[in-house]
């Protein structure tokens, strides 16, 4: 049991490239129904909630929208947080820019610099945006918004470009190849040990970093500046 998750990650690696899954657990999952509790959802019920979209385009609703249409929607619904050009107001997420910054001391992870799939932008916006008014726009409006966000990132260059359910999944993102499967079990193999050191493990140590010198621990009377997570 204890080693299962580590082994599982290896299995996952296999799955990602199409190796068949463990036959035993598949067979086990096929038994039933045993309890007959609950009912089948109607097609209408499924249609209303089935809003996810995959990189291969599965799940994209019929619809279309242009960059220019998206720009207007963005100004009305999004720019107060994300800025007119996706630069992000205050601590709200930056949507554009950051190209070439991933190896720098201050990586700026945006749709253009980091996100691997354009479909993810559609899936996320359709799930969660506009912030505070989620799932309120039409499919056409979501296509238009995604088109504008891709335009802000120079992934689409023509203002009149129309994004739709036929061409969104084919839109390649600059950082698609920027990801690797979790490799901690091999890259960090040295963290597994038989007998951890107990005595004289290091030479004399000195304090090299102090939280009180940074002085950003919560305090009602003053603000602080971020160097951490968003």
């Amino acid at each position: 049991m204890s080693k299962l998750p580590r082994l599982l990650s290896l299995v996952m690696l296999g799955l990602a490239i199409g190796t068949p899954a463990l036959a035993q657990s598949k067979a086990d999952a096929k038994v039933g129904p045993k309890y007959n509790i609950g009912r089948a959802p109607t097609p209408e019920e499924i249609r209303g909630w089935d809003i996810d979209v995959r990189p291969d385009g599965q799940g994209l609703p019929e619809g279309k929208g242009t960059v220019a249409e998206g720009e207007k929607l963005f100004m009305d619904n999004c720019s107060s947080c994300h800025g007119e050009f996706g630069e992000g107001n205050g601590r709200w997420p930056v949507l554009a820019g950051g190209k070439g910054s991933l190896t720098s001391d201050n990586p700026v992870k945006t749709v253009g610099s980091y996100w691997p799939y354009a479909t993810t932008v559609f899936d996320y916006i359709r799930h969660a945006m506009p912030y505070g008014n989620a799932e309120s726009l039409s499919a056409n409006e979501y296509y238009a918004l995604v088109a504008y966000v891709l335009y802000l990132n120079d992934i689409i260059s023509d203002q009149n470009f129309e994004l739709n359910n036929k061409n969104l999944a084919a839109t390649k993102m600059p950082n698609e190849q920027g990801f690797i499967m979790d490799d901690r079990s091999t890259a960090e193999r040295s963290f597994w040990q038989t007998n951890p050191c107990m005595k004289d493990c290091l030479g004399p140590v000195k304090i090299t970093s102090r939280a009180m010198a940074i002085d950003v621990t919560p305090d009602d009377s003053k603000g602080g500046k971020s160097r951490g997570v968003e």
Binding site: S9, A16, L102, Y114, Y117, T120, Y124, G178, F179, D182
Partner: peptide, 30 residues
């Protein structure tokens, strides 16, 4: 239930671990 992962925002833009070489680990669940 599907046959492939969805690569949602929370497993691409977020919850991926950027390494010094600019590559990021994905699906680092444990």
């Amino acid at each position: 239930v599907g046959d492939r992962p969805w690569h949602t925002r929370e497993e691409t833009s977020k919850y991926t671990d950027l390494l010094p070489n600019g590559k990021a680990r994905r699906f680092s669940w444990v």
